[in-house]
Amino acid sequence: MGLFSGLLNNYSEVSVQELTAQYGAYLMPQEKILMGFKLVRDSFMFTDERLILVDHQGVTGKKTRVASIHLNSIYEVTMETAGTGFDDSEVTIHYITSPYFKTNNVSTATYKFEFGKKFNVQPIYVALMTIAHQNNKRLNA
């Protein structure tokens, strides 16, 4: 089922040990992976500082794109649970991409994570929404 889910663009959870062994070189000093997920080749993981998105490109997957979304830039989170049929569960984060958060010209972006029907996305939503709420309070203080 894992490969089938991966082919349908659904993430499945991966152990912290496996992610650390494979992607530990991308961590900043003292940074720790808290949880992570994987498609067939691509992965994303939550650390105590950021989300790390790993995109293996090309036929062999040797070319790799690594991107980060800092947790302190997330300001909104939406969740959509799976319905009937082929619907998947989704969590979408909205985050600030400009280097200065308190400015008149803030740049933003969104990123959508898709999970299989049976995956419970509520804990991820609550964790990210808690971060977004704290960020909103800090940014609007």
Rank of each mutant, 00 (worst) to 15 (best):
residue 26 Y to G: 04
residue 27 L to P: 08
residue 27 L to I: 02
residue 27 L to D: 06
residue 28 M to E: 14
residue 28 M to A: 15
residue 29 P to R: 15
residue 29 P to G: 13
residue 29 P to D: 01
residue 29 P to Y: 14
residue 29 P to Q: 12
residue 30 Q to A: 01
residue 30 Q to I: 00
residue 30 Q to C: 00
residue 31 E to K: 12
residue 31 E to F: 12
residue 32 K to W: 00
residue 32 K to N: 05
residue 32 K to C: 05
residue 32 K to E: 07
residue 32 K to G: 04
residue 33 I to Q: 11
residue 33 I to G: 12
residue 34 L to K: 15
residue 34 L to M: 14
residue 34 L to W: 04
residue 34 L to Y: 07
residue 35 M to R: 15
residue 36 G to F: 09
residue 37 F to L: 03
residue 38 K to W: 03
residue 38 K to H: 07
residue 38 K to N: 02
residue 40 V to N: 13
residue 40 V to W: 03
residue 40 V to P: 01
residue 40 V to G: 00
residue 41 R to F: 12
residue 42 D to Q: 07
residue 44 F to Q: 01
residue 44 F to C: 08
residue 45 M to Q: 10
residue 46 F to C: 03
residue 46 F to D: 00
residue 47 T to Q: 01
residue 47 T to P: 00
residue 47 T to G: 04
residue 47 T to M: 05
residue 49 E to N: 13
residue 50 R to D: 06
residue 51 L to P: 03
residue 51 L to A: 10
residue 51 L to W: 13
residue 53 L to D: 06
residue 54 V to F: 05
residue 54 V to P: 06
residue 55 D to N: 08
residue 55 D to G: 04
residue 55 D to L: 03
residue 55 D to W: 04
residue 55 D to E: 10
residue 56 H to K: 12
residue 57 Q to L: 15
residue 58 G to M: 14
residue 58 G to A: 11
residue 58 G to E: 14
residue 59 V to T: 11
residue 59 V to I: 11
residue 59 V to R: 12
residue 59 V to K: 11
residue 61 G to V: 14
residue 62 K to A: 06
residue 62 K to N: 14
residue 62 K to Y: 08
residue 66 V to K: 05
residue 66 V to R: 13
residue 66 V to W: 09
residue 66 V to Y: 06
residue 67 A to V: 06
residue 67 A to Q: 13
residue 67 A to P: 03
residue 68 S to V: 02
residue 69 I to H: 04
residue 71 L to F: 08
residue 71 L to H: 11
residue 72 N to K: 13
residue 72 N to P: 05
residue 73 S to I: 04
residue 73 S to C: 15
residue 74 I to N: 02
residue 74 I to E: 02
residue 74 I to G: 01
residue 76 E to G: 02
residue 76 E to A: 07
residue 76 E to N: 10
residue 76 E to K: 14
residue 76 E to M: 09
residue 76 E to R: 11
residue 78 T to N: 00
residue 79 M to G: 07
residue 79 M to K: 12
residue 80 E to L: 09
residue 81 T to V: 09
residue 82 A to E: 05
residue 82 A to K: 10
residue 82 A to I: 05
residue 82 A to P: 08
residue 83 G to M: 11
residue 83 G to R: 13
residue 84 T to A: 06
residue 84 T to K: 13
residue 85 G to K: 11
residue 85 G to A: 06
residue 86 F to S: 15
residue 86 F to R: 15
residue 86 F to G: 11
residue 87 D to P: 06
residue 87 D to V: 11
residue 87 D to N: 11
residue 88 D to E: 12
residue 88 D to A: 14
residue 89 S to T: 10
residue 89 S to W: 03
residue 90 E to V: 09
residue 90 E to H: 14
residue 90 E to R: 11
residue 91 V to I: 15
residue 92 T to R: 14
residue 92 T to G: 10
residue 92 T to I: 10
residue 93 I to N: 01
residue 93 I to G: 04
residue 94 H to D: 05
residue 94 H to T: 05
residue 94 H to G: 03
residue 95 Y to F: 13
residue 95 Y to L: 00
residue 96 I to K: 04
